[in-house]
Each structure stands twice: as C-alpha cells, then as structure tokens.
Design a protein around this nucleic acid. Structure first.
Length: 777
RNA sequence: GGGUCCAUAGUCUAUCGGUAGGACAUUGCCCUUACAAGGCAGGGAGCGCGGUUCAACUCCGCGUGGACCCACCA
C-alpha cells in the first residue's frame, strides 16, 4: 500500500484565510437565528473608537479574544448574538479633526465641523472593520451599528427623556471640573494629574482683633477675592490664640473667619490655608462643610469675573502676576518658594482644570449605590479579581454624574427652553432631535402656554450616555419586545480594565435605572497591551504597535494563537515579534501533523493497542484542561495546553511510536488500523479544541479531511477516554529521551540498531518502542 | 496618604506542602521517509528576612521591588 498525503503543501499559508472567510460568509454559519430553540448568548461587544491611526495591537488582540468567546459559546451549544459596532461620539474625533484639518472647533461652523468629523470617522472606521474581518471575527458585520447613527442617538435621547420623567435628571449650579481649552465640563474620570512647578506665595493677612500679621501660603493668589475663611490645624500650638478671631483679606479688605480644621497641615507652608471658591476639591469640600457662600472668581472663558474687582477681565495667569506685583508693592508678601505641585489636568488637552460653578445636567447615581453594589457582587467576573475595581469605584462616588457637555460631535440634549417662562420643555421620545438647528416640535409652552417661541439647547451629552446603553441598543430595547426578551440581559460584557469605572459602571447604572435588571450575567475584563519593555502603549508615548502589517504578514490565526498564548486572562500582555514568530511555527507544526495523518485512511473503529490507549488517556486530560479554560473564557489555558500536548507529546512521542505501525511495517493489519483510528481521532479532537482560537487552519484541515460541513458547527469534545494510562507518560518520555541521548552520545544515527532493555513498566508498549528505536533484544 | 493585584532562568509562564515543567531567546550536534518555519541534546530560575511544618516556590508575617486604581497638600 502506498501512502500519499491529502494535504500537499508543507506549511500553513495565511493566504488561504481570505478564501476561507468567503466560504463562511456564503455558508452563513455565524448568522444569529432569533427563532432558535437554543439558549441565547449575547455578547455586548465593545464598539471600538476610531480615534486615529494606528489602531492599537492590544485592541486588536482584545477583539480577537472576544471572537474566541463567541466561538466557544457556539461550540458549547449556545445561539450566539455577536453584534459589531463602532463608537463614534465624543471628544477624540473632534481633537483629531482639529489637528488633521488644522482648524479650531470654536472658529468653525457647527455644521461644517460635524461633517469633517464624519469624514474622518468613516476613514478610520473602514480600517478597523477591515482589521476585525482579517482577524476572523464571527460577528454580524452586515448589520454593524454606529453610536452616532440616527437610530442610536434616538435611543440615547429617548432613554434620557424616560429618566427625566422618572425624576432622575436635574440641573444644578455646582462646582464643576472645567477645561478652559476644551470649553467643557469634564467628569472626574477624565482628569489626570501631573507634577508641575509652581510658586508658593506667602501672603500677609491682618488679624482684625489685634492687627497682627497672619501668614498664609497659597499657589493661587488670584483667588484672594473669593476667600471666605482661613483655617489652621487645631493641634498647631503656634496658632492656638487665633480661635474665633477674624482676618482681613489684603487688597479686597474684607473680613473672614479664622477656624480650626484638621485639613490644614502644620508642616506645609505656614500651616494656615485660605479657603477660596475654588482652587481645588478640598476647597469644595470645605465650602460644603463650613456652609460658606461661594464667590465666583473665574469665568468659563478662563478670565477673572466681576468679583475680582480691578483684576476683572484679566486671564488667570495675568491676574496672578498682577496681584503678586500689587502685593509686593504693598509689602504684603513675606516670601516666595518654588515647589512642585500635583496639578489636575484635562486628560485630552493637558490644560490645568479650573473648578467653576456652572449649571449642568446631572444624572442621579448616588441614590443607587446600594443597588449598584448588589449587582457588582452578584455579577460574574472573568477573572474574579477584577470585581474589586468596580466595587471600589462605586464606593468612592461622591457626586452624581454630570452628563452635559459643551461640544459639537455628540448626541444633542433634547430640550427646548420657553422664551417666556425659560422652563425646559422635552419633546416626545422615539425621535432624533437636534435642538441647535431643528424647529421646536411644539407651538405652545407646556408650562406657561406662551407662544413666544423656544430656544434650542446647544449642549450635547457625555459620550458615556451613549455608550452606557449599548446592551439596550443591540437588543432593540423599545423597538422589538420579542427580540429584547431573547437577547437581554446580555450573557457577557467583554471590555478593557481601564474603563471599568466608566463604561462598565455607567452601563450597569443606566440599564438598572431603565429596566431594573442587571445588564449582563458577567463581565470579562482583559488586561492592557504593553510594548516590549512592558510599558503601556499609548499614542502620546509613541510606542503603539500597528496590528495591520503583522496581520498582513502572519494572518489572523497566527495572530490569534499568539495573543491567546501570551498572557492569562486579565493580565497585561507584551508585544513581542519573537513570540509571534514562534506562534507561526506552531501552526506549521499542526499543519504538518495533519499532513502526515492525511496519508492514512480514517478508520471508524479499531481494537486499540496500549500505546493508543496511552495517548487517548493524555488526550482525555487535555480535553478536561481545555474545557476548564474555555468555561472561564481564559484562552491562555487551552492555548498553552494544546501547544504542549500537540508538540511535546503527540508529535514527539506518540507519532514516532505509532509511525511504523501506521506504515504497516512489522505489524498486522488490525494493529495498523488501530494506529490510523487513533491518529485521526486525536487530530479531529485537537482541531475541535483549537477551533475557537485559530478558526481558519482548523476549518481548512477539517474540510480537507473530514467533511463538507464547517468545524465551527461542531461541539467541543467531551472527555470520554479515561483509560488511566497517563501515569505512564513520564516513563515513556524518559525512555525515549534516554535512547535518543545514547545514540547521540555514541554518534549513531537514529535508525541504527541498538541493544537496550525495556523497563518492565513499559512492557505493554514494547512492540511500538522496539520498532521506533530499532531495538535488538 | 489609602487600596487592589503581582514577584519563578535574559523574557513569558506551569506546578493550589513532597525530585521546579514548558515556551521564546541562547549553545552544540543532526537534512532520521509529516515538518530544517524541523529533530535531538546542553547551559540557565524560586526578591530578602523571619514564622508554621517531618517537609515551603507553594501557607502566614514583615520588608523590598513593580503594575494599576482611588484620594490629594493649600
């Protein structure tokens, strides 16, 4: 009998992937069947944000792993709903557009600016979609959604109107984080801190009762006009006699109380702090605690307001310089020190934020903390240890969520204001409104019945208002009840670690407020992609690795196997070209094993030899291990286990032991068929176990050898070969290694006949071992 | 300042109390009929100090170092 491999090429060719992808599309094997009788598993896919080139290799890896979740769930018997979306709202695209066209948002018409944003987004989006397809994502590309579409924004507005009706939205004057450059309030989560040099100024205040000097140290002398109290530490012996006295603020000559408060640190500056509205968040806390009346010092334009007297109209910096000059002239400055100061910055523009009281819309979240904690404790976390990040965040919330933004590229807040009574009028839900340019949808004011007309709201929502309803949008909330019931709550929310406190938190909050339900059964949290030095990749550091050239060179399967075998779930994973190379080698190995096995016919049953039972015992252990990994959506476990088994046991030992038998050299037909049976059985199982990780090569080999239907319609293998012979593995590999070593040491070819005693524990494998090593007994 | 997580060869990772296994890289030998994008072999590791135990990489404490999060000094 002559043996010819069915598979002829001797290496895996990533170029085949495109053709395989086409057949998937034609066969429609991933299409969601909403009339299924299977249990539905919804993936609340994170819509990636096209914020500029290149797309992060870590992000690409993230999406390839989300696809592994989808494929795993399918092979576990679920009907998988795997939507694909693109997040397009918000500041990053505005910044990208400003840079790309060298324009300023404030000097461009709103209409024109929005159109430029759309053009930029379309370009970036096309590349992302392409990358997702190349990686072999089995999501619904035909119906992919955009968060800036009319439909999506309609839902954002509709849910806002619903929450408004529930009384969960309110407008309030409140100290806000405000970025003067971006011209918008920003959420706490958008602030970053940096050590920056600044001057600490020691200013002389006068004590009203005694006329003595009191020295306070400040980095913000321009805020003197809004000083409403000065404090010292109650333990500070130096200032004991200040209790209950009053101080006179220099220049503005006003009287403020002197109070003892533990917040003042004795060792910093002079030990006395002035409390102004608002230099930082401790000022805010102090104003609330001491019930002081706020004085607005700085306007949203970043200039001094009318309360600043002579300094009104000056920029913050100019006002600071001028007031220092004036104080110096009057001899009111004791000294100046250069210090490093941890300064809060806007994370996009890197401008120091100001705390300015403004009117903004808020969504209540503080009232929901107990329910949110309950959900955080009830939800599954993959991996479990990331649960604490969410719990800590919920526990640290102190204010409600400011949801209004003074930007252009976002979902508009659907409100008109009556020109007569100034009250907010909300339109009917289920329609998309652009109040800054649309005609008002009502003639008379529902509050005062006036017909004087309306002023449209010009602000937009925080982008998280859109993002936080993704599970509702994909499940057609409010549009298709039947579909909604089947697909909501979602089975899993895959996402990155750094947006637990935004996306995950806000989604849980909003879905709970609207549906009283937990948005998803579980959250799957992936780590960061870091560069070869272990540093987190970011555009500003310039260490972002572009996934596109890597995918073009190696294809989706190698890329996917690489990132699955690179780090455990939730851990950061390091980009390394060497590792990608070695992943490519593994696929070639798997390919060649398949090629070898493809020489032999597949037997439907056989009388197994002990060697066959041994490898099946090991296969059984492998299946158990893989199932353990797949059930926890931790692909590192099956990826490494498969590599280990395939390369170091199956190929190195079993294949060599069974080779002569498979060729029929020195064995009878029954034994030969047992080898054929086992080789194919192991290969089929390996392909199925490997299919969620590398879907292309597995499907290709499957169809070449085992049938027309795709491997992706198969179920995950179950452990059913518990022969218990895995105990022999150590002895077998040791024995083989010893003979290889002996032959090598003696400079003999592996084919040379050798005389060795086979240990009695290996008696049962004797015949295969004798033929494998050419042993003379 | 508070918290969470982590610490095994140059790098990544396994072993949930009993000879530290594997991968990448590195070195040497070999074209052995699936694979030189391969095979075989070699060198190389438990952060420090205590404690629990017959036995600690594994459990506990302290320290050191790192990652991340929160708060934040006027």
């Amino acid at each position: 009998m002559e043996f010819k491999p069915k598979i002829t090429e001797n290496r895996w060719n990533p170029g085949l992937e495109e053709k395989i992808r086409k057949t998937w599309n034609e066969e429609k094997i991933y299409v969601f069947n909403k009339n299924t009788k299977k249990k539905v598993f919804t993936i609340d896919t994170p819509p990636p944000y096209p914020s500029g080139r290149p797309w992060h290799i870590g992000a690409a890896a993230h999406y390839s792993q989300i696809d592994m979740i989808a494929r795993t769930a399918r092979m576990m018997g679920f009907e998988v709903f795997f939507p694909i979306g693109i997040d397009r709202n918000g500041l990053p695209v505005e910044n990208y557009t400003e840079k790309k066209y060298n324009i300023s948002i404030h000097e461009t018409s709103r209409e024109k600016f929005i159109n430029l944003c759309v053009t930029a987004l379309d370009d970036l989006e096309a590349e992302m979609i392409q990358i997702m397809k190349v990686m072999g994502l089995s999501g619904d590309f035909d119906n992919y959604y955009r968060t800036d579409s009319k439909e999506y924004r309609t839902l954002t507005q509709t849910t806002f109107i619903k929450l408004w009706d529930k009384g969960l939205i309110y407008e309030d004057t409140r100290p806000n984080n405000y970025c003067i450059k971006c011209g918008t309030t920003i959420a706490d989560a958008e602030i970053e801190y940096e050590e920056l040099p600044t001057e600490l100024i020691y200013i002389k205040f006068k004590m009203k009762e005694t006329g003595k000097d009191i020295i306070i140290a400040t980095t913000r002398p321009e805020l003197l006009c809004s000083c409403q109290a000065i404090i010292y530490n109650p333990k500070d012996e130096r200032y004991k006699d200040l209790e209950g006295k009053h101080a006179i603020v220099p220049i503005f000559s006003k009287e403020v109380p002197i109070l003892a408060h533990p917040y003042a640190k004795q060792e910093f500056g002079s030990g006395i702090v002035m409390i102004c509205s608002y230099g930082d968040y401790s000022d805010v806390r102090m104003f609330r605690e001491l019930k002081l009346k706020e004085i607005i010092a700085i306007t949203p334009e970043g200039k001094m307001g009318k309360n600043a007297g002579n300094y009104a109209g000056l920029s913050i910096k100019d006002a600071r310089n001028k007031i220092i000059q004036d104080l110096e002239k009057a001899g009111l400055i004791q000294k100046k020190e250069n210090i490093m100061h941890r300064t809060p910055l806007c994370y996009r523009s890197k401008t120091p934020i100001e705390i300015i009281p403004m009117k903004e819309y808020y969504l209540k979240q503080i009232d929901f903390i107990p329910e949110l904690l309950k959900i955080a404790k009830n939800m599954k976390f993959y991996p479990e240890r990331h649960r604490q990040i969410l719990i800590d965040w919920i526990n640290s919330l102190t204010i409600d969520w400011p949801v209004s933004r003074r930007r252009y590229y976002g979902t508009e807040i659907p409100i008109w204001y009556c020109k007569n009574c100034k009250k907010a009028c909300l339109p009917e839900p289920e329609k998309y409104y652009q109040p800054w340019k649309d005609n008002p949808p009502f003639k008379t004011c529902p509050h005062c019945k006036s017909e004087k007309g309306f002023e449209g709201e010009t602000r937009t929502f925080d982008t998280w208002m859109d993002s936080s309803i993704s599970p509702l949008f994909i499940s057609k909330y409010g549009k298709d009840d039947d579909f909604f019931k089947k697909t909501f709550p979602a089975g899993i929310r895959p996402q990155a670690k750094d947006i637990i406190r935004t996306w995950l938190h806000y989604t849980i909050l909003r879905c709970y407020q609207l549906t009283k339900k937990q948005a998803f059964e579980g959250a799957w949290i992936m780590g960061y992609g870091v560069d070869e030095e272990g540093k987190r990749m970011s555009k500003s550091k310039g260490n972002v690795v572009d996934p596109l050239p890597i995918l073009e060179k190696y294809g989706g399967d190698i890329f996917r196997f690489w990132n699955a075998s690179e780090a455990g779930l939730g851990s950061d994973f390091r980009y390394s070209n060497d590792k990608i190379e070695s992943s490519a080698k593994f696929l070639t190995k798997l390919w060649n094993i398949s090629r070898f096995i493809s020489m032999f016919p597949e037997e439907k049953k056989a009388e197994l030899t002990e060697t066959d039972k041994w490898i099946l015992s090991e296969l059984n252990e492998l299946i158990k291990k893989c199932i353990e990994g797949y059930e926890s959506f931790d692909f590192f476990i099956p990826a490494t286990a498969l590599r280990e088994f395939t390369w170091n046991l199956f190929a190195s030992h079993y294949l060599e032991m069974a080779k002569s038998r498979a060729y029929g050299q020195g064995f009878d037909e029954e034994e030969q068929k047992a080898a054929w049976y086992t080789l194919h059985l192991v290969l089929k199982t390996l392909l199925k176990l490997f299919a969620p990780i590398s879907p292309f090569i597995t499907d290709y080999v499957w169809k070449e050898l085992y049938g027309k239907e795709s491997i992706h319609l198969e179920s995950l293998s179950k452990p059913e070969w518990g022969f218990g012979l895995e105990k022999s593995t150590g002895k077998i590999t040791e024995f083989n290694t010893e003979i290889w070593k002996t032959k090598k040491d003696k400079g003999l070819s592996l084919k040379t006949e050798i005389e060795v005693k086979i240990p009695k524990e290996l008696k049962q494998f004797e015949k295969d071992l004798i033929n494998m090593h050419n042993i003379r007994i």
